[in-house]
Design a protein around this nucleic acid. Structure first.
Length: 176
DNA sequence: CTCCCGTCCG
DNA sequence: CGGACTGGAG
């Protein structure tokens, strides 16, 4: 649900969705129309179909989600970001997870000129703490930094905890 | 108009 | 690589 959709909007759907489909088996055996209906208004309806296909695949293969990013990535609707996010946040695997927030933070802090996806992921991996548990915290922290402080429109460099190490933030504070 | 905890297809 | 997919908020 969070793929390209704001948290505030997902919050209106996620609890109801989970109530209706408490776990993968329920989602797997549900009529596709009921899944689509539960998704109504959220947009990107392919995600709903992908999610049910994912549920069916996982259920028919023992019912357990893999914790490995490469294996997660093979599931429908799971790209590099989601695979990393699930592996890190659900399983505490040591993996990078670059979403739009993280990408923006990394761009501003380390690549003020231009940076492609590969560069951003490489930077994210280079910054990743050794232990999985600490990588979880790092991923959570950098993502929230982008969502709450280093935001797309108004960046709040004054309250940014990594301002001193940021290529963009250093200038911004001296300029304005 | 851009942006949002992207992914897939051509 | 670019574009499609979706809709609401700022």
């Amino acid at each position: 649900m969070l793929q390209q959709t704001q948290v505030s909007r997902v919050l209106e759907y996620w609890p109801r969705f989970l109530e209706q489909f408490p776990a993968l088996p329920a989602l797997a055996s549900a009529p596709p129309a009921s899944v689509r209906e539960a998704w109504d208004g959220l947009g990107y309806y392919r995600r709903a179909a992908n999610l049910q296909a994912l549920a069916r695949t996982v259920v028919s293969n023992g019912g357990v989600l893999p914790d490995d990013p490469a294996q997660l990535r093979r599931l429908p609707g799971v790209g590099r970001y989601t695979a990393g996010a699930v592996a890190s946040f659900a399983f505490e695997r040591r993996t990078a997870a670059v979403d739009t927030n993280v990408a923006r933070v990394l761009r501003r802090a380390f690549h003020p000129r231009r940076a492609n996806e590969a560069t951003l992921w490489a930077t994210a991996e280079a910054l990743l703490p050794r232990r999985g548990r600490d990588a979880w915290t790092f991923n959570q922290a950098i993502m929230e930094l982008g969502a709450l402080v280093c935001t797309a429109r108004v960046r709040r460099c004054e309250v940014c905890p990594v301002r001193a190490a940021c290529a963009t933030g250093r200038k911004v504070t001296s300029d304005k």
